[in-house]
Amino acid sequence: MTRIPRFHLAIPVDDLAAATRFYGDVLACERGRSSDLWIDWNLRGHQLVTHLAPAAPRAANPVDGHDVPVPHFGLLLTVPEFHALAERLRTADTAFVIEPYLRFAGRPGEQWTMFLTDPAGNALEFKAFAEDADVFATSV
Protein backbone atom coordinates (compact mmCIF):
# COMPACT_ATOMS: atom_id res chain seq x y z
CA MET A 1 0.00 0.00 0.00
CA THR A 2 1.41 3.40 -0.98
CA ARG A 3 1.16 6.04 1.67
CA ILE A 4 0.25 9.56 0.59
CA PRO A 5 2.81 12.07 1.89
CA ARG A 6 1.54 14.23 4.75
CA PHE A 7 3.07 17.15 6.55
CA HIS A 8 3.23 18.11 10.21
CA LEU A 9 3.42 21.78 11.05
CA ALA A 10 3.52 23.44 14.47
CA ILE A 11 2.68 27.14 14.65
CA PRO A 12 2.56 29.68 17.49
CA VAL A 13 -0.77 31.14 18.59
CA ASP A 14 -1.42 33.60 21.39
CA ASP A 15 -5.02 32.53 22.10
CA LEU A 16 -6.17 28.90 21.88
CA ALA A 17 -9.86 29.88 21.96
CA ALA A 18 -9.38 32.17 18.96
CA ALA A 19 -7.39 29.42 17.22
CA THR A 20 -10.27 27.01 17.92
CA ARG A 21 -12.81 29.37 16.36
CA PHE A 22 -10.62 29.91 13.29
CA TYR A 23 -9.30 26.40 12.62
CA GLY A 24 -12.31 24.54 13.99
CA ASP A 25 -15.22 26.75 12.93
CA VAL A 26 -14.02 28.83 9.96
CA LEU A 27 -11.70 26.30 8.28
CA ALA A 28 -13.74 23.31 9.56
CA CYS A 29 -10.68 21.33 10.68
CA GLU A 30 -11.35 18.33 12.90
CA ARG A 31 -9.86 18.75 16.38
CA GLY A 32 -7.51 16.05 17.61
CA ARG A 33 -5.52 15.68 20.82
CA SER A 34 -5.00 18.76 22.96
CA SER A 35 -3.76 20.16 26.24
CA ASP A 36 -3.86 23.56 27.90
CA LEU A 37 -0.87 24.55 25.72
CA TRP A 38 -1.60 23.06 22.27
CA ILE A 39 -4.25 21.61 19.94
CA ASP A 40 -3.82 19.14 17.05
CA TRP A 41 -5.91 19.88 13.94
CA ASN A 42 -6.64 17.73 10.90
CA LEU A 43 -5.98 20.15 8.04
CA ARG A 44 -7.22 17.97 5.15
CA GLY A 45 -5.18 14.99 6.29
CA HIS A 46 -2.18 16.99 7.49
CA GLN A 47 -1.33 17.50 11.14
CA LEU A 48 -1.35 21.15 12.16
CA VAL A 49 -0.55 21.89 15.80
CA THR A 50 -1.36 25.26 17.33
CA HIS A 51 1.00 25.89 20.27
CA LEU A 52 0.40 28.63 22.81
CA ALA A 53 3.52 30.77 22.29
CA PRO A 54 4.53 34.28 21.27
CA ALA A 55 4.43 34.94 17.53
CA ALA A 56 7.60 35.41 15.50
CA PRO A 57 8.26 38.62 13.54
CA ARG A 58 6.80 38.69 10.03
CA ALA A 59 8.12 39.97 6.70
CA ALA A 60 6.90 40.13 3.09
CA ASN A 61 8.29 39.67 -0.42
CA PRO A 62 6.88 41.34 -3.55
CA VAL A 63 5.20 38.86 -5.93
CA ASP A 64 2.90 39.91 -8.80
CA GLY A 65 2.50 43.36 -7.26
CA HIS A 66 1.42 41.93 -3.90
CA ASP A 67 3.28 41.80 -0.59
CA VAL A 68 3.38 38.05 0.05
CA PRO A 69 3.74 37.32 3.77
CA VAL A 70 6.80 35.35 4.86
CA PRO A 71 6.71 32.86 6.42
CA HIS A 72 3.43 31.32 5.31
CA PHE A 73 1.98 27.87 4.81
CA GLY A 74 -1.08 26.51 3.10
CA LEU A 75 -2.67 23.86 0.96
CA LEU A 76 -3.19 23.01 -2.67
CA LEU A 77 -6.89 22.53 -3.39
CA THR A 78 -8.96 21.70 -6.44
CA VAL A 79 -10.44 24.73 -8.20
CA PRO A 80 -13.97 23.99 -6.87
CA GLU A 81 -12.58 23.50 -3.33
CA PHE A 82 -10.67 26.78 -3.63
CA HIS A 83 -13.77 28.76 -4.58
CA ALA A 84 -15.88 27.05 -1.90
CA LEU A 85 -13.26 27.93 0.74
CA ALA A 86 -13.02 31.51 -0.52
CA GLU A 87 -16.80 31.84 -0.15
CA ARG A 88 -16.69 30.25 3.32
CA LEU A 89 -13.99 32.74 4.36
CA ARG A 90 -15.97 35.68 2.96
CA THR A 91 -19.08 34.49 4.81
CA ALA A 92 -17.00 34.42 8.03
CA ASP A 93 -15.90 38.04 7.31
CA THR A 94 -12.27 36.96 7.01
CA ALA A 95 -9.91 39.79 6.08
CA PHE A 96 -7.71 38.71 3.19
CA VAL A 97 -4.06 39.77 3.02
CA ILE A 98 -4.36 39.10 -0.73
CA GLU A 99 -7.86 38.59 -2.14
CA PRO A 100 -8.46 35.46 -4.24
CA TYR A 101 -7.17 36.01 -7.77
CA LEU A 102 -6.01 34.13 -10.86
CA ARG A 103 -2.28 34.06 -11.72
CA PHE A 104 -0.68 33.03 -15.02
CA ALA A 105 -4.04 32.81 -16.85
CA GLY A 106 -3.79 30.59 -19.91
CA ARG A 107 -0.14 29.70 -19.22
CA PRO A 108 1.62 26.77 -17.53
CA GLY A 109 1.15 27.15 -13.80
CA GLU A 110 -2.26 28.85 -14.07
CA GLN A 111 -3.52 29.02 -10.49
CA TRP A 112 -5.97 30.64 -8.15
CA THR A 113 -4.38 31.94 -4.95
CA MET A 114 -5.38 33.78 -1.77
CA PHE A 115 -3.62 34.78 1.45
CA LEU A 116 -5.05 35.39 4.90
CA THR A 117 -3.89 35.30 8.49
CA ASP A 118 -5.20 33.39 11.46
CA PRO A 119 -6.04 35.31 14.67
CA ALA A 120 -2.39 35.03 15.82
CA GLY A 121 -1.08 36.54 12.58
CA ASN A 122 0.16 33.29 10.99
CA ALA A 123 -0.10 33.69 7.22
CA LEU A 124 -1.86 31.02 5.16
CA GLU A 125 -1.97 30.60 1.40
CA PHE A 126 -4.51 28.47 -0.40
CA LYS A 127 -4.11 27.82 -4.10
CA ALA A 128 -5.58 25.71 -6.87
CA PHE A 129 -3.87 24.85 -10.14
CA ALA A 130 -5.80 24.49 -13.37
CA GLU A 131 -3.62 21.43 -14.08
CA ASP A 132 -2.16 19.38 -11.23
CA ALA A 133 0.86 18.55 -13.37
CA ASP A 134 1.79 22.26 -13.38
CA VAL A 135 2.44 22.47 -9.63
CA PHE A 136 6.17 22.33 -10.24
CA ALA A 137 6.21 23.91 -13.72
CA THR A 138 9.48 25.75 -14.35
CA SER A 139 8.30 28.12 -17.09
CA VAL A 140 5.45 30.55 -16.60
Rank of each mutant, 00 (worst) to 15 (best):
R31M: 12
E30N: 13
L48D: 04
N42Y: 03
H46I: 06
L37N: 12
C29G: 03
R33V: 13
F22G: 10
C29W: 02
V26A: 06
L52K: 03
A28E: 15
A56V: 04
A55Q: 00
R44S: 13
H46L: 06
A53I: 12
Y23M: 06
R58C: 01
L43D: 01
C29Q: 03
D36Y: 10
G32E: 08
F22K: 08
G32M: 04
H51K: 05
I39Q: 12
I39M: 07
L48F: 01
E30Q: 15
R58Y: 01
A55H: 00
Y23I: 06
L27I: 02
L43K: 02
A53T: 11
W38R: 13
S35P: 01
P54N: 10
I39E: 06
G32H: 05
R33Q: 12
R31A: 14
N42A: 07
N42E: 05
D25K: 09
A53R: 14
G24W: 11
S34W: 04
V49Q: 12
L48K: 05
G32Y: 05
H51M: 10
A56N: 05
V26I: 13
R33M: 10
A28Y: 11
T50E: 10
H51Y: 09
L27A: 02
T50L: 08
N42R: 07
H46Y: 07
V26F: 05
W41E: 00
R31K: 10
D40W: 03
F22Q: 09
G24I: 10
A53P: 11
L52E: 07
H46R: 07
R33D: 14
A55T: 03
L52N: 02
D40T: 02
S35M: 01
E30V: 14
S34D: 11
Q47D: 15
R31F: 04
A56S: 09
D25P: 02
R31W: 06
Y23G: 04
R31Q: 14
L37S: 14
Y23T: 07
L48S: 04
I39W: 05
R31V: 08
Q47C: 15
G32N: 07
E30W: 10
H46E: 11
T50S: 15
P54W: 03
L48P: 05
L43F: 11
A56I: 04
V49L: 11
V49Y: 09
R21L: 07
L48Q: 05
H51I: 08
H46N: 15
F22V: 13
N42P: 03
V49A: 11
R58G: 00
Q47R: 15
G45W: 04
Q47N: 15
R21S: 08
W41D: 01
R33A: 14
W41K: 02
L43M: 06
P54R: 10
W41A: 00
A55N: 02
S34N: 09
S35E: 01
R44K: 14
